[in-house]
Design a protein around this nucleic acid. Structure first.
Lengths: 298, 298
DNA sequence: GAGGATCGGTGCAAAAAATGCAGCGCAAGA
DNA sequence: TCTTGCGCTGCATTTTTTGCACCGATCCTC
């Protein structure tokens, strides 16, 4: 869209922090870029950047405008997607922010199912923790978010919720592997494999441990859920994950035992989008598919 | 906004129905206009007009785009208003769709009160019946609507509701003028002054009359509520209005007697805006003022 | 059924706008 | 103090847009 290029330039200057740097990214001269920004500000009626000795920064008016630009662009994308839809071709691009647990099995499977029907739809998946995910929606960097125990939920409009209790993950050879349910205190006798504090599973476990007065002291703290699974497989350590991130068939060497609801509050997996947004057709259809898949699993 | 001029042109062509007519309105040559439309369609990726022998008409894609254009423009106006707000000057323009009853006393008073505080805010008021009002919101021709008994309410997001019972309006010399309450059948003995069927008062009265099996036969049917009041003053005929459209002080020659709730369902006056819209600052503040004023009256 | 009116579209030259280049003044950091 | 990077501007050049004249097609009227 040539007539919206000013917007691209404004965003470029915002990202680069200075006109000259932005000019390089935009394949344009700094002077031309400068004059377009100035012309826009004059039309707009007020400055949108504050001029600092070291470059440009958006002022409050600019922040407001930036949000408009992003929202406007998203809406245009939605129009495009709807137009493509009514001409019979299902095209589009779906941007997803999700918790790490969805990466290994759930999302790949769902995306592959979706693309079997609509191969012209492309996807981008961003791993985000429970705070970042919502921010991603606000910045229009993701269309939908699939998050375990999201943090604020002020700009998050819920499409679907499903309970995901915390499971203890251990080797099949582990003494506790055959149990139907575990108390948290039983786990504390073994080495603990825990994700970082930015993850929902850890938040729930920390809260539960705090209630019984025995703070968690992990033998391994990592950001990788995959690493937790692997470590659990080779020893007596216990990891923790949620059902949606696991696949019984894939790893016959692991056992999964739910923690008692008396100890650990049952966490929930939220599917949602930015409050008030109208999703592009492709994103909406995919969200519906995910909701259905989660509903079946629950 | 020079860079959004294509949008103006698209709307102009849509309104005028042909490029050549639109060219006159836009102070531009038909050829230039034609080429801009073509260039836009190429960028956009699909045609937005169907070429008829007699001119141009928006195709479905164009309709979608048109709505985006309007919504986009409104959002930009909101940004402007917010920017003006944070620079201390309260400026803006508020577009209101309302029932006729609001015109003589209520809205003039409210607008004057508002403009006493914010003289830089301007207003436009469109009289719309219960169906047109909602359409006005959808087309972004009005920011807020104040309607008695609106029709569909699918795109109408309610901000405030207040009960407005139907009153019989008659001369103070009328035999029924001193009554505290009237039954509908009592009114039927006199000549009736009724508004057209597109008005909420008439809808309620017709429904009530149908229930008691005596269809209304108006002596005068008019679109002008003012005319109804004047006719009521000079004779024994009875008109019907709602409280918000009346002012006790202004006409000491008229009496207002509520109809019994047993006969006529108490109608309601709705204040609202387009579902999902974020109103400009000025419109929002004015809506809040109106809601407060209606709340006091109720 | 002929003729006029109106429609969208196009080739070409003129007008207008955007761009690139070189250079200015200024402030921060080395 | 000198250098570096910043935003900004005058001027020549390039690119884009516009206006004018005109084409073929369709519809309405007489």
């Amino acid at each position: 869209m040539r007539h919206l290029m000013v917007y691209d330039m404004i965003e470029a200057v915002h990202r680069a922090g200075s006109i000259r740097k932005a000019a390089e990214d935009t394949n344009i001269t700094a002077s031309a870029l400068n004059r377009r920004i100035q012309a826009f500000e004059q039309e707009f009626g007020s400055e949108i950047f504050e001029r600092l000795p070291r470059g440009m920064r958006l002022n409050p008016a600019g922040e407001l405008l930036l949000h408009h630009i992003r929202s406007q662009r998203q809406d245009l994308a939605r129009i495009h997607s709807q137009v493509a839809d009514l001409s019979g071709v299902r095209r589009g691009h779906v941007k997803i922010a999700c918790s790490q647990a969805l990466l290994p099995y759930f999302l790949p499977r769902q995306i592959s199912i979706y693309r079997r029907d609509f191969p012209a739809v492309t996807f981008s998946v961003n791993v985000r923790d429970r705070i970042q995910a919502e921010q991603d929606l606000v910045n229009f960097e993701s269309d939908i978010a699939l998050v375990y125990e999201p943090a604020h939920m002020v700009d998050f409009e819920v499409l679907h919720v499903v309970a995901q209790p915390v499971l203890a993950v251990m080797s099949r050879a582990h003494p506790l592997a055959a149990r139907r349910e575990l108390r948290l205190r039983e786990c504390l006798d073994y080495d603990l494999l825990l994700p970082g504090r930015q993850y929902g599973v850890r938040v729930l476990l920390d809260a539960a441990a705090h209630r019984i007065g025995r703070p968690l002291e992990p033998a391994l703290e990592t950001e990788s859920f995959e690493m937790i699974r692997h470590c659990a497989a080779y020893g007596q350590a216990i990891g923790f994950q949620i059902p949606v991130g696991l696949n019984e068939l894939a790893r016959p060497d692991l056992a999964y035992v739910p923690l008692s609801g008396k100890d650990v509050a049952g966490g929930q997996l939220y599917l949602g989008h930015l409050r008030g947004r109208t999703l592009p057709v492709a994103a909406l259809k995919f969200a519906n598919q995910i909701a259905a898949a989660l509903g079946d699993a629950a």
